[in-house]
């Protein structure tokens, strides 16, 4: 019995041990290929089943994002003015919003091919940018750049830039506005409202 448990433990944790070794560009590539593969096969997702797309993003994509860092960067100097409780709520709400947005974006990219550019990094680097391009027929390719940081567990994404527009920077401008107008609680309220609004729209 004990040996069985040990074997089980090894099986369970082996993937995590491995994850540490995966290079950041290989990680981005394998995750996006896997996700696109699932989307291409799944009729429900293609016909616009938001719940299912969100589930897919939650299980396959989210583990590779560092949401605390993303939220902190999007908050800028205001992050340190927020209490730990506020920081937690902000991170949770921002996460919900991003998952939904990402799911929408994902379903529109299903027919495009993605090219991955060679990673330009030194072996010891702990902060890299993985560059990829989405090719669309008849149009200039759209670049998608993932800023990634090496953490204890594995490489984690902390910013995504589409066509040079960084998610974190764009939200930082809005967040700064919101905080100036209504304080940190005002921002939390706006995020809450936005998420609730999207949820009701989805149920209709």
């Amino acid at each position: 019995m004990q040996r069985f448990l040990f074997a089980l433990a090894v099986l369970l944790f082996a993937p995590f041990a491995n994850a540490q070794e995966i290079a950041p560009d290989a990680l981005v590539k394998s995750v996006s290929q896997e996700v696109l593969e699932i989307i291409r096969k799944d009729r429900d997702i293609q016909s616009g089943n938001t719940r299912k797309t969100i589930d897919l993003v939650e299980t396959k994509v989210l583990p590779h994002f560092d949401f605390v860092r993303m939220t902190a960067l999007a908050m800028g100097p205001n992050w340190r003015r927020a209490t730990p409780d506020q920081q937690k709520v902000l991170t949770d709400q921002f996460r919900v919003l991003l998952v939904r947005t990402y799911s929408t974006a994902l379903s529109s990219y299903k027919n495009h091919t993605i090219d991955y550019k060679p990673l330009r990094a030194q072996p010891g680097d702990t902060d890299v940018v993985v560059k990829s391009e989405v090719k669309q027929p008849g149009q200039q390719a759209v670049t998608i750049d993932y800023s990634m940081e090496k953490t204890a567990a594995s490489w984690k994404v902390y910013d995504v830039a589409v066509g040079g527009v960084s998610l974190v920077t764009t939200y930082r401008d809005t967040f700064t506005n919101e905080v100036r107008q209504g304080g940190i609680d005002g921002l939390i309220k706006s995020l809450n409202e936005k998420n609730r609004q999207l949820e009701t729209a989805e149920k209709k």
Binding site: T104, G163, G164, V165, T170, T174
Partner: peptide, 24 residues
């Protein structure tokens, strides 16, 4: 479609995206 979902204040979001995109 994505913008519609992502932005708290679409005006500010579009403005920020515009400057980044142009610079790029």
């Amino acid at each position: 479609d994505v913008l519609e979902q992502a932005a708290l204040d679409r005006y500010a979001y579009v403005r920020s995206a515009f400057f980044q995109r142009r610079l790029n």
